[in-house]
C-alpha cells in the first residue's frame, strides 16, 4: 500500500462533488419542466375548466359550450377494455415464459421479439389495428377496435413487467412449493402470483397510463375527433381524451386552440395522476404483506 502516491489526484474530491451537483441539476430540471408545464396549462385552463366542461359534449362553434364528456367516457371505456384484454394475455405470456418454457432457441426468439415490440412506435400498431381489426375483421373504428389496438401497444410492456415481477420472487419459494408436492400450476397460483402481484399491478397501471395518453394509434384506425354522443356498445364510434385535445389544438379559434385544449389536458393529467396514485397505493397495500 505504501507505493500509492500521495496527492496523486488532487482534484478527485472536487470532481466528485461537481459530479454530484451535475446529477442533482439533472434531477431537478425534470421537476422544473413538469412544474412549468402544469402551471402554464393551469393558467390557460383557468376559468374554462368547470363542471359544465366535464359534462358537456364538444361544440362545433362555441368554446364556452364545449366539453370533454364524449372523450372522457370514451377514454374510460378504452382503458377498461384494454385492461380486460391485456392483463390476462400479458400475465399468461409472462407465466409461460418464466415458469413453463424450457430454455430453447424458440423461447429466445419469443423473448427477443417481445422486447423489440415494446420499442415499436405506437403509430405502427395503429396501422396494424386499422388493417386487422377495423378492415380485416370489419369492426369499424369503434371502441372495440380502439381497445384491441391499444392492447397491442401495451401488451409487450405488461409482459415484460410481469416477467420481471415473477423473476423477483425468490427461487427458494418455488423450491419449497415443489418440494411439498405442489404442481406447477399450484405453485404459480398459490405462491408466485400473490408474491408478484404488486409488481405486476404496477407494470399494468404504468402500461395503462401509456394507453390513456396515446393519440397516434387511434388516429391511425380512424377514430373520430368530433363526437356528440357516448358509446352505447363496443362497436360504436368514439373519441378519446388525447384525440379530442389534438382536435382542439388544430382549431383556428384561439379559445379552442388554447383554453379549451388546456382544460382537456388538465382532465387527462388528473386521470393519469389518479392511475399512478392507484399504482403506488396498490404497491404499498400488497407490498406490506410480503417481507422477504
Amino acid at each position: 500500500m505504501s507505493s500509492l502516491p500521495r496527492n496523486g489526484r488532487p482534484y478527485a474530491k472536487l470532481a466528485s462533488q461537481l459530479f454530484a451537483y451535475a446529477c442533482a441539476a439533472c434531477a431537478f430540471s425534470s421537476v422544473a419542466i413538469l412544474v412549468l408545464l402544469l402551471s402554464q396549462m393551469l393558467r390557460f385552463a383557468w376559468g374554462w375548466l368547470d363542471w359544465q366542461f366535464i359534462t358537456s359534449f364538444d361544440s362545433q362553434l362555441s368554446p364556452d359550450k364545449a366539453g370533454v364528456r364524449a372523450a372522457l367516457v370514451g377514454s374510460i371505456y378504452l382503458i377498461a377494455l384494454t385492461t380486460l384484454f391485456s392483463v390476462p394475455i400479458g400475465v399468461g405470456s409472462a407465466i409461460y415464459l418464466e415458469e413453463y418454457a424450457q430454455r430453447s432457441r424458440w423461447r429466445g426468439i419469443v423473448q427477443t421479439n417481445i422486447a423489440n415490440l415494446a420499442g415499436v412506435p405506437s403509430i405502427v400498431y395503429g396501422i396494424l389495428g386499422l388493417g386487422l381489426f377495423v378492415r380485416g375483421m370489419q369492426m369499424g373504428a369503434g371502441v372495440l377496435a380502439g381497445a384491441l389496438t391499444l392492447t397491442l401497444v401495451v401488451l409487450p410492456i405488461v409482459i415484460l413487467a410481469s416477467q420481471e415481477a415473477l423473476r423477483a420472487v425468490p427461487s427458494t419459494i418455488r423450491q419449497a412449493s415443489y418440494a411439498l408436492g405442489a404442481t406447477r400450476w399450484q405453485t404459480v397460483w398459490h405462491q408466485l402470483l400473490p408474491a408478484a402481484l404488486p409488481g405486476i399491478m404496477t407494470g399494468v397501471i404504468l402500461a395503462l397510463s401509456r394507453a390513456l395518453g396515446e393519440a397516434a394509434p387511434l388516429v391511425a384506425i380512424g377514430a373520430a375527433g368530433f363526437v356528440m354522443f357516448t358509446p352505447r356498445g363496443i362497436n360504436d364510434s368514439f373519441t378519446a381524451l388525447p384525440l379530442q385535445i389534438y382536435n382542439w389544438t388544430e382549431n383556428a379559434n384561439d379559445d379552442f386552440r388554447i383554453h379549451v385544449a388546456a382544460a382537456g389536458i388538465i382532465v387527462l393529467m388528473v386521470m393519469l395522476i389518479c392511475l399512478n396514485a392507484t399504482a403506488v397505493f396498490l404497491r404499498y397495500r400488497f407490498g406490506k404483506r410480503i417481507h422477504w
Partner: peptide, 16 residues
Amino acid sequence: LRKRVGMVFQKSNPFP
C-alpha cells in the same frame, strides 16, 4: 414422490 419424500432446505424458506 415429493409428498412421500419431504425436504428441508439449508436456508429456512417459509412462504410469506
